[in-house]
Design a protein around this nucleic acid. Sequence first.
DNA 1: TCTATCTGTCACTATTATAGTTACGGAAGG
DNA 2: CCTTCCGTAACTATAATAGTGACAGATAGA
Lengths: 132, 132
Amino acid sequence: MTLLAQTHEEPLTSEYIAGSVNTHPVFIRRILGMLNKAGLVTSQAGVGGGWRLRKAPETITLLEVYRAVDENHLLSLHHRSPNPRCLIGGNIQSSLEGIFGEAELALEQVLHTRTIADVLNEVLQHAQARAN
Amino acid sequence: MTLLAQTHEEPLTSEYIAGSVNTHPVFIRRILGMLNKAGLVTSQAGVGGGWRLRKAPETITLLEVYRAVDENHLLSLHHRSPNPRCLIGGNIQSSLEGIFGEAELALEQVLHTRTIADVLNEVLQHAQARAN
DNA sequence: TCTATCTGTCACTATTATAGTTACGGAAGG
DNA sequence: CCTTCCGTAACTATAATAGTGACAGATAGA
């Protein structure tokens, strides 16, 4: 997304993006596909096609990106559900869900305060600092 | 930990705990071993042995438990590092680390406000509500 | 209309992370 | 000395994640 923000006039191909992220084009297309469904990017087939941001970088928060890409929770229980016949095991799931939800909400609130434009600015500043 | 808080007078064996968590005793021993190194629990070998909390449940925050058990970050980049020859790829890592760190800190602050005793109380309340 | 891209998606493989399982030495207590 | 239980290693099984090849369809330009 930061890459797209930098060159938002011209679309970038999944192959080019994969080169920066150091991964496979299909992996990029899969993730950009999710971001597309979330309305954050747009794609165009054919010669000179590729991916572009659908909104200004200043209006895209990291929370939007996070929610578009990550479907399952950060904090969770063991993947096997606890013994329902145990007093604790049978009731801890809902208790922890509440606390975990609260904690993740706090994390998401931070992500809500930052935009793609912020990240791009930070990256450019960092690059300039390293050049000097 | 909640299970240990409930019966903090007598030690619980890894086999008993595994029954509640619905997993294998060795898995429980591995995790309790980490909590032991963090000073949160204590173990005793032999007949009538097992695991106990080393501190009062009211003094054990979920943050302590979380830090003892989870070594790697919740939010992270792709496991393959980005292309250092790319302007964005070469500088985004440190930028995101800062933001991610801030976000995780917010999450951890929530975990810091809750103790094992809180969880036990909530679980018992929930159990009572379901009984009625 | 033909051709060279480039997306969108499927199917499959490779790799890694996570948990399950067996095994066994050693500590503790009766 | 015998039973119980921890501590840990080694190995297997399973699931999650990423890599790879393939191909239909969309698009733009010759």
